[in-house]
Computed example of a mutant assay.
Amino acid sequence: MMVCHCMAISDRDIRAAVDWMRAADPDTIITPGKIYRALGKKAECGGCLPVFMDTMRQCDSFEVPEILRGLRRVTAKETSDERRRKGH
């Protein structure tokens, strides 16, 4: 199935790139940008990203590396002021 018409990227291309990256480095974080670079392409309009992301997530080898699972998430309250002093 064609996922990105602008760059002619299919679901097979995405799966192959994810598998290749995971085989090269089991602890890597796989992002859409890394997949585009692995395929030698650049994102154009971004209209494909929802389908692109769904295709990535469906890959068997896409899972988050074990070492990064369970990391604490930052709450909205902690990021709202970014620890800036008043007046900035």
Rank of each mutant, 00 (worst) to 15 (best):
T28M: 02
C45D: 10
R69V: 09
V64N: 00
D13R: 12
I67A: 14
P26F: 00
G33C: 10
Y36I: 03
K77T: 04
Y36D: 08
L68S: 10
A24V: 05
A16Q: 13
V74C: 05
L39I: 05
R69G: 07
T31C: 04
D13C: 11
C45H: 10
E78Y: 00
K86D: 07
R73I: 13
G70Q: 08
G87M: 14
M7N: 09
Q58G: 09
M7H: 06
L71E: 07
L68P: 02
A16R: 11
I30M: 07
M7K: 15
V64Q: 07
D19Y: 00
R69N: 07
I67E: 15
C48N: 04
E63S: 15
L71M: 05
R57W: 09
W20N: 04
D13Q: 15
A8V: 03
R84S: 10
A38N: 10
C48V: 06
A24R: 06
V64S: 05
G47F: 05
M53C: 11
K86F: 03
C59L: 03
K86W: 02
C48H: 07
S10P: 06
H5A: 12
R37T: 08
D19L: 00
A76W: 01
I30V: 14
D60E: 13
T55G: 05
K34R: 15
D54V: 06
G33Y: 09
P50Q: 06
M2L: 03
T75D: 02
D54H: 14
R37N: 11
T79M: 06
W20M: 09
M1Q: 12
C45V: 09
P32T: 10
K41R: 15
L39F: 05
F52Y: 11
T79R: 04
V18C: 03
D11E: 15
V51C: 06
K77Q: 03
T28S: 09
Q58Y: 01
D54Y: 07
V74G: 09
I29R: 11
R83E: 10
T55F: 03
D25C: 08
R85M: 13
K77G: 05
R12K: 15
D27E: 15
R83A: 09
D19G: 01
